[in-house]
Design a protein around this nucleic acid. Sequence first.
DNA 1: CACGATACGGAGCAATGTTCCGCTTAGCCC
DNA 2: GGGCTAAGCGGAACATTGCTCCGTATCGTG
Lengths: 189, 189
Amino acid sequence: MSEEEAPRKRADARRNQQALLDAAAAVFVRSGVEAPVRDIAAAAGVGMGTIYRHFPTRADLVVAVYRHQVEACAEAGPALLASSGTPHAALAAWIDLFVDFLVTKHGLATAIRSDNAGPLHAYFLDRLVPVCAELLAAAAAAGEIRSDVAAFELMFGVGNLCAGVDPRYDARRLVGLLVAGLGSGGGGA
Amino acid sequence: MSEEEAPRKRADARRNQQALLDAAAAVFVRSGVEAPVRDIAAAAGVGMGTIYRHFPTRADLVVAVYRHQVEACAEAGPALLASSGTPHAALAAWIDLFVDFLVTKHGLATAIRSDNAGPLHAYFLDRLVPVCAELLAAAAAAGEIRSDVAAFELMFGVGNLCAGVDPRYDARRLVGLLVAGLGSGGGGA
DNA sequence: CACGATACGGAGCAATGTTCCGCTTAGCCC
DNA sequence: GGGCTAAGCGGAACATTGCTCCGTATCGTG
């Protein structure tokens, strides 16, 4: 949607943009999502100006790098709802997917909430909250979970839970607890 | 414990340390825990050197400012266990206390996990994890909750959950869900 | 091939935490 | 009261960020 014709950029511009995306992906794997912009520019073999012309903000670059994965996660929602035994199972499976995404990208969960990550934050939430809401509503309608928790709140909380990096901390397990708590007293303990 | 005799600092040094603590407390309330060190130094009417001699690191200053509140929270643990109806109730009440502490200090939860907050992180955890462990063990022994969640993990998760500042996000509610999840399937489900 | 729009590069700016070092002064001894 | 010394102080300077600016190089079209 809103696929207005691209003004046909110059060849070197397109080339650089791709190089930047590849380099950023590589650097993010190696040094985490919080890697300095300079490092990424260096890895891509371009100057600071170039990186900022293509991605006005650090967050925009991160969004671009992970966009298709977020998309995949968003699309998996309805699919899981259709294929899983119960809405609650679908919800759990979907959140698992999301958590996997967050914890495999070193520092993503933390970066999402960083000061100047407004765009990042907004993008993730805008894209995934509706999906989560659908799963949540289905589970609530089936009487499997309480109905007083908003999708936004749940996503926000799950994102928060995925922030740590301590070896004795397993984000997945705590998220599991949270999802389990969702079912407790499904509308009245 | 380890109360080695203080080398009796100079009067102005003690005065400045106190001024720094007071100023920091004030600034933290006004601008959040992430306030620039320079602001605190200015508010206290001292130079940068002074602040760093008394508190080698930003985190050390934060720890010093909140130390007695953390202490109070730690001491409330056993008290709640003795006065509450059930260990689970005591645990919930205690975590509530902790959450209140975190959310009333603008940005504290976020700061705790910030890069160079090692000392902060370590102090909070060292002091409170044992208390949490006691409550957790009591509740588990009473068969009220599953027994496969470590105190460290729970504290870490609760701390993470308290990070956001969005108006449509209520950390307390999600922590409540988490604690509720603790009880679900008490050891299997 | 010439020329204008497009894109590039990287020095430079602002904000931060932290370190360093010459100057000041409290506190003791006479 | 007057020195003297070490403890203490202030703040300039450094390193690391994200981000901006603008002179220069390059693309692609006529």
